[in-house]
Design a protein around this nucleic acid. Sequence first.
DNA 1: CCAGTTTGTGCAAACGTTTGTATTTGGAGC
DNA 2: GCTCCAAATACAAACGTTTGCACAAACTGG
Lengths: 334, 334
Amino acid sequence: MNKKITMIELAKIARVDISTVSRALSDSPVVKESTRKRIQRIASEVGYAVNAPASSLRRKSARALGMVIPLNPETDQTMSDPFFLEMVGGVSQAAAELDYDLVVSVPREASHAAEQRLLNTGRADGIIVIGQAARAAHLNELAARNANIVVWGARMKGAKYTTVGSDNAKGGYIAATHLFSRGARNILFLGDPGLPEVKLRYEGFKKAHKEAGVTHDPSYLLRMNFGGRTTYDQVLEFLRAGNRIDGIFASSDILANSAMHALVAEGLSIPEDVKVVGYDNIGQSSMMTPPLTTVSQSIAEGGRLLVELLLAKLEGGTANSCFTKTELIIRHST
Amino acid sequence: MNKKITMIELAKIARVDISTVSRALSDSPVVKESTRKRIQRIASEVGYAVNAPASSLRRKSARALGMVIPLNPETDQTMSDPFFLEMVGGVSQAAAELDYDLVVSVPREASHAAEQRLLNTGRADGIIVIGQAARAAHLNELAARNANIVVWGARMKGAKYTTVGSDNAKGGYIAATHLFSRGARNILFLGDPGLPEVKLRYEGFKKAHKEAGVTHDPSYLLRMNFGGRTTYDQVLEFLRAGNRIDGIFASSDILANSAMHALVAEGLSIPEDVKVVGYDNIGQSSMMTPPLTTVSQSIAEGGRLLVELLLAKLEGGTANSCFTKTELIIRHST
DNA sequence: CCAGTTTGTGCAAACGTTTGTATTTGGAGC
DNA sequence: GCTCCAAATACAAACGTTTGCACAAACTGG
């Protein structure tokens, strides 16, 4: 490391005071344009970069956002779920464009220690939490202390924090409606309605049934967590128990994929025998066999919104919870 | 934000000097055990956390690692490739366990500006770069300046930096050998040998052919980048041109998946007509139809190794490049 | 009981910025 | 040529830690 140059040395080179350098580098209008340009030129010539810790210390702001991705061992979601990971991409991009760094934390425990730490240590100015699930109480507690926090997920009653998420009820509704339009009448729902997001999807799903005059047998709900490890077996068992279906709505693409796998194993063809709709529109869904029709959550848009709302909060504004565009991506026409 | 408490106030409460508090919190053996315990207790009671920027400034170490995931627009790899993203998970976990924070950066341009910035601003003590591709020269330049940098990828001739990666040559070799053992003789290779990793995989692949006495027709190499967007069409075209194959070795699971898709479209069954082997063992590969036999890169292990080697470097040690366990995951027996 | 040693704490100086305030500089107006 | 004002720059005090050093207290052995 060619010994790092400091602002003081830069000031010496430019023959001005260090304070002028500081102001010049932050584009303060108070320093004369010619001086500013000159200092900036010198800075880039010698490869100077403002020391982040020092700057953060003095300004009491890290210009960094924390991103917390809680892996609830209970729901069996792992880092390999592309949904989570696409979210990292989206948020990272959005943060970078606004010149914020992103500190990622993947806590194992269910407490809100990770959030606390990021905020209390001053390493992040605000944090983005992906998924609330059983942690809503914790998050509320944090939010109550006026913490700058934005959450990806469904808006829950009484939640004190800002959320961004897809319109889950609408998502469930359009998925079911699509299946009806393709002739499906006996639709299996996959997911854990214990999670607020899934609950809303299920409700939208049922609402569509009611409106279409199709009865939904509650036993056509297969409870399973997001991990997808048990999906194949559960669906297989369901089919072998003699249940007849012509449609599946899975609350995530990963579940849909495993379910399709089970269908094929039972000799059913997709979409001729059974039509399948997923949720998320992860990158892989277009490459599945057959390409999966799914409800798009606009993960990239979500990432951008999360960052924007958080920054608005940091600047003292109020940020309202909002939905990302929730639409059906139709991948096979039958 | 209940106004953050500082070490000074903590010292007042504990009726000791701030320096003692500092030492106590960092588990210095020089402060008496009873005092240490007492201070730590008080700290956790009042919810005190050491201010990271101040600490970083003083210690000249951020206790944070940078992770750079360059998205080369040329090779069309996007954040949605689960491989990259699983890597984030692995590294993040490993870093957290060693009490380091992880600053993630996803630069768009091909320069090494992101690495520079993370290092120069002192926001990260060292950085992990995922993939080298066309950036080897940049990375060498950085490494030459004694930068603390560890790279995921194949070890390249003359590279000055430490690398961690799977044993690509071995991977290609065992993939081909497996296909032979299943009776395949006309194997199609998918990937871009312009990339060092893929080149090695291809060489191992050819070596296996030579040893098995099977001739490899160079036209059975379909050049394509990692994105996978064109794979389906390329494979389809290849088949429709009348080429007969009974095996495919794809240099990534994503490519393998699209290729399988094309095979099915041509009425070929897997693995009866064509046996397919992928590379990476991403989470989805076990859920494909049929489950994909693939060469495992041990991404989680890779993440751990990257972090460990980088920390070793930070502590002044020398870190030798190394391989992760590279093994075949057999998912269908035929 | 005193010198010498160990053990535990306190003092104070950094670390590299940012920013409120003071000071200089260079013009304009008279 | 002097005053006054604005524009541009310099001064200096923080920000919250860590750590070398000095110091005090408590032991040890002779």
